[in-house]
Structures are given as C-alpha cells and as structure tokens.
C-alpha cells in the first residue's frame, strides 16, 4: 500500500538535478514511518484477527484450533459482556457530561477580565497532564471513608465511595471529571476567544438579554470546537482503563477495557479476547471516523 502511493512524480522540482531528487527524499521521509506503523500497529491486528477465530490459550501449549465465528457468537450472546458495555456507556455519559459542565462553565468564567488569567489557566490545566494511574491511586486516600479529606471537607461522615458498589462508578467518574474538565475548558476558551467582539456589542445595542446573547451568539459559535472536545473525550472515556482498574475492583465498575484485560491476561482466553478486542476496535474506529470528519470540517473554516 505504501509504495503504490509514492509513485506519482514531481518532475518539475528545481533541485531534481542536484543531490537527491525530491521523490527520493519524499519517499525516504515518509515510507519508514508508514512501514513502522504497519509492522507495529497493523500487523499485530491482523495477527489477532487470526487468533480471534481460534480457541487459543496463551497459557497452555495446546495448539490453536479453528472455531470459526464461535467466539464472536458467544460474546455477542453473553449478557455479561453487554453489561460491561452498559457500564462503559454509563461511565462515558456521566464523565463526559460532568467534564462539559465544569469545563465549559469554567471557561465562561475565565473569558473575562480576570487578573492573573494566564497563571490561573495554566494551574487549572495541570491535572490533565499528570499520570492517570499514579494520581488516580492517590484518590484512594482522598476517598477513604475514615480519613479521606473528601468526606471530611464535605461533612459526609464515613461515607463509602469506592467500596460501595452503587457509588464506585461515580467516584471513578468524579476523578475523571477532575482530570479532564481542564481539557474541555482549554478548547472552550479557544472557541470563546474567537467569537468576534462586535457581535456582543451589537447585541448590547439591541438590548439583548444575557440568555439571548448566550444561546444565539456564544453557543452557536463555540459549538464546533466544543463538539471536538466532546467527541474526543467520549472516545477516551470509552477506552478508559487506568482509573477504574486502579481505584476499585467492584463488578459495577468493570468497563469493557477491564473485562478485556481480565479475559486476556488473567483468564488467558486469548482467542476469545482477540474477538472481543475486534468488537471494541470497530466501535472505536467508528467514533474516530466521526472525530476526524469533524476535525477536517473545523479546519476548513
């Protein structure tokens, strides 16, 4: 695939007569990367596609037997897998909604004449740069029912967060909202600062109320960039593994990535986990496709 693309010639180049031709340079610059990604990203996926039709177990020496579509059929008929998807969907909705409310709200507040705006913005962005796994771990102490500062600060007594099956998913989502609202805020700020000032002035002259101004001017103009943030966060929340895996081991927080990890590396159902990986992969590619289409649309403007 890579070489077929590289055959169009750029003969009019001035430097074609000296040194390496442009075509050779272009191929030298692009092909290694494409090959690298094919070998380390595409080839493994082909490899696992093969295994997804077998009953292979990486923990045993037994050879893999071809079982056709049985893995896929079993997975799609397994109510527990659907439960994992439902948990994932619930998590995505809670966490992305929270991030949009907190992130966009903070951006609206920051989009004013505020002293030390630059410093405050940078400080607010800090959580999203940190390691989810390492910082997530520390939230275990913050959530601790007896000496966590969250219960102490909000006067919740010895409220159980992580060991309560009904609460654990919310606790993970709250940590995720803490980490990633800054991302929504960052993108929203970019969108808000791009709204032309004269629109607001015109609205003020027309005595438009704050709600009218927000819904008719601010929101429509920020919507595309906010949409990018939402799709991107949806994609990431759908793939989430680190936080939920580290914070709790409740069955109610077993999102699809954790199920996949357990199936592959704890139960060693290698063949079946490859099939599940493919089901997840197709879903992620669908969301990615939407994301990239949207990116290109926004870029064109």
């Amino acid at each position: 695939m890579a070489t077929a693309v590289m055959t169009s010639l750029d003969t009019k180049s001035r430097s074609a007569s000296r040194g390496m031709s442009d075509i050779r340079i272009r191929n030298l610059f692009i092909i290694p990367t494409i090959l690298f990604l094919i070998v380390f990203n595409i080839f493994p996926l082909i490899y696992s596609l093969g295994y997804s039709f077998t009953d292979f177990r990486a923990s045993s020496n037994a050879p893999a037997n071809f079982v056709g579509l049985q893995n896929y059929r079993a997975l799609l008929n397994d109510p527990f897998i659907w439960l994992n998807f439902a948990i994932t969907a619930k998590y995505v909705i809670i966490s992305v909604t929270g991030q949009v409310i907190v992130g966009f709200g903070t951006a609206m507040l920051l989009n004013r004449d505020i002293p030390l705006k630059g410093l405050l913005t940078t400080l607010l962005l800090l959580p999203m740069m940190l390691s989810m796994a390492v910082v997530g771990l520390f939230w275990k102490l913050l959530y601790d029912p007896s000496f966590g500062i969250i219960n102490y600060t909000f006067g919740l007594g010895s409220f159980e967060w992580l060991s309560n099956p009904d609460m654990a998913l919310y606790a993970v989502a709250i940590t995720d909202i803490w980490m990633w609202s800054p991302f929504v805020m960052l993108l929203s700020l970019a969108g808000l600062s791009a709204v032309p000032k004269h629109l607001y002035e015109a609205a003020a002259i027309d005595r438009a109320g704050p709600f009218y101004t927000f819904f008719r001017i601010t929101l429509p103009l920020v919507a595309p960039i906010l949409m990018i943030a939402i799709i991107f966060r949806t994609m990431e929340a759908f793939k989430t593994f680190d936080l939920a895996y580290i914070l709790t081991s409740q069955p109610t927080t077993e999102v699809i990535s954790i199920r996949l990890y357990k199936m592959a590396f704890q139960e060693w159902q290698t063949g079946r986990s490859c099939a599940l990986a493919y089901i997840v992969l197709i879903m992620v590619l669908a969301i990615t496709n939407i994301y990239v289409k949207y990116l290109n649309k926004v870029k064109e403007r």
Binding site: M235, Y261, T270, C274, Y291
Partner: peptide
C-alpha cells in the same frame, strides 16, 4: 493507529 485502545493492541503485541 493512535486511537486504538491500549489493551486491544497489547494482546497481539504480548504474543
């Protein structure tokens, strides 16, 4: 290639 969930890539890479 960047958008793939790490666990999905990790299974064949591990093998």
């Amino acid at each position: 290639t960047r958008m793939l969930p790490p666990v999905v890539v990790a299974i064949p890479m591990f093998l």
